[in-house]
Computed example of a mutant assay.
Amino acid sequence: MAKTQLNVRVDEATAETAKNRASQRGISVNRYIEELVRADQGENGRTFVEAAADFMKQYEAVFAEEFGHEREGRRLNVLSDDDASNGGSASGRTLA
């Protein structure tokens, strides 16, 4: 992966903290900052998924009314690769 250089200005205390934390982990300050950004990105993704799930729970009745109650709570049987090769009997797992 190509690297891009960023120049960041922080106060002395923040710079010292970054250096100390990186040193404690045995990694460079550059690597430490990369890991912080990746962790933040992952947290944002989790936050989005949780918010979407909460939204769906909150408005489940509205969706059911709009798109029909026959779809409400519907589950799909899922075949694993093993199930498919053994004649296609479902393993009992379902997806909501």
Rank of each mutant, 00 (worst) to 15 (best):
E66N: 08
S80D: 03
E72S: 12
A51K: 09
T47I: 14
A51H: 08
L79A: 08
E34Q: 15
A51M: 11
I27T: 05
E65K: 08
A90Q: 01
V78K: 10
V29Q: 13
S80T: 14
A52V: 10
E65A: 13
R38K: 15
R25L: 14
N86E: 12
G42P: 10
G88A: 02
D83Y: 04
N44S: 13
A53E: 12
S85D: 02
E65G: 04
E35M: 11
A51P: 01
N77G: 03
I27K: 05
Q58G: 06
K57T: 09
A84P: 00
R31Q: 15
H69Q: 14
A53I: 06
D82I: 05
A64Q: 06
F67S: 09
Q58F: 06
A64C: 06
D81M: 04
F63R: 05
I27Q: 06
N44T: 09
I33W: 03
A84D: 07
A61R: 09
Y32G: 05
D54T: 10
G88Y: 03
R38A: 15
V78L: 14
A39M: 09
V37R: 06
R31L: 13
G73N: 12
S80K: 03
D82F: 04
R75L: 01
L36S: 11
S80L: 07
D81T: 04
F67V: 05
F67P: 08
N77A: 08
R71C: 08
S80Y: 04
S85F: 02
T47F: 13
N86I: 00
K57Q: 10
S80E: 04
I33D: 11
A51T: 12
E60H: 13
T47D: 11
Y59A: 10
V29W: 01
F55M: 12
G87Q: 03
G87C: 05
V62E: 14
N86M: 07
N44D: 14
G45H: 12
A90M: 01
G88I: 00
K57R: 11
A64P: 06
L79C: 02
Y32P: 02
F67M: 10
N86L: 10
R74E: 05
E60T: 08
G73I: 00
F63V: 07
N77I: 00
K57D: 13
R74A: 11
Q24A: 10
G88H: 03
I33G: 11
H69G: 14
R71F: 14
A64N: 09
R25Y: 02
A39S: 11
N77Q: 12
F48I: 15
E50K: 12
V62S: 13
S80P: 00
E34D: 15
H69C: 02
D83H: 04
R46C: 09
A52M: 12
S85P: 00
L79N: 05
V29Y: 01
E72Y: 11
A64G: 10
G26V: 03
S80Q: 01
